[in-house]
């Protein structure tokens, strides 16, 4: 069973979003997503400063098996990216909610967070998809 921390928000595309409480969020891919993809070998991140629309393709995580797009969970500006992943993409497998984070975004509208899934809804989504 995948780990789904209760304090995070989620998207249907298997990203997690952490509200940093200062108008910014941290984004990564869920434990479930990394498990499905398998050993990560390459991560392509957005440019810092990039303005993203919610739902826009903005990053790619590639495992030995497959490439998978990562979508911006909310609208806003990329303020930081996890550059360590360039050399160590496997951290996404090891610590998807910690050192395996992908990027920080400054939110345009904090209310957008309310539209994301909570942990319970995300667990349900995983259960549905595995049937």
């Amino acid at each position: 069973m995948s780990n789904v921390p209760s304090e995070l928000k989620y998207t249907k595309a298997h990203e997690w979003v952490r509200d940093e409480g200062d108008g910014s969020v941290t984004v990564g891919i869920t434990d479930h997503a990394q498990e499905l993809l398998g050993d990560m070998v390459y991560v392509e991140l957005p440019e810092p400063g990039a303005a993203l629309e919610a739902g826009e393709e903005c990053a790619v995580v590639e495992s030995v098996k497959a490439a998978s797009d990562v979508y911006a969970p909310v609208t806003g500006e990329v303020i930081d990216i996890n550059g360590d992943l360039e050399e160590m993409p496997e951290v996404v497998n090891r610590d998807p909610y910690g050192d395996g984070w992908l990027f920080h975004m400054k939110l345009e509208d904090e209310a957008e967070l309310d539209g994301l899934l909570d942990a319970e809804a995300y667990i349900e989504l995983i259960a549905e998809e595995s049937h």
């Binding site: 398998g38 050993d39 070998v41 030995v64 098996k65």
Partner: peptide
């Protein structure tokens, strides 16, 4: 079987 845990380790 596509893998038994880690494809990289198996390789």
């Amino acid at each position: 079987p596509v893998h038994y845990g880690s494809q990289l380790e198996e390789h």
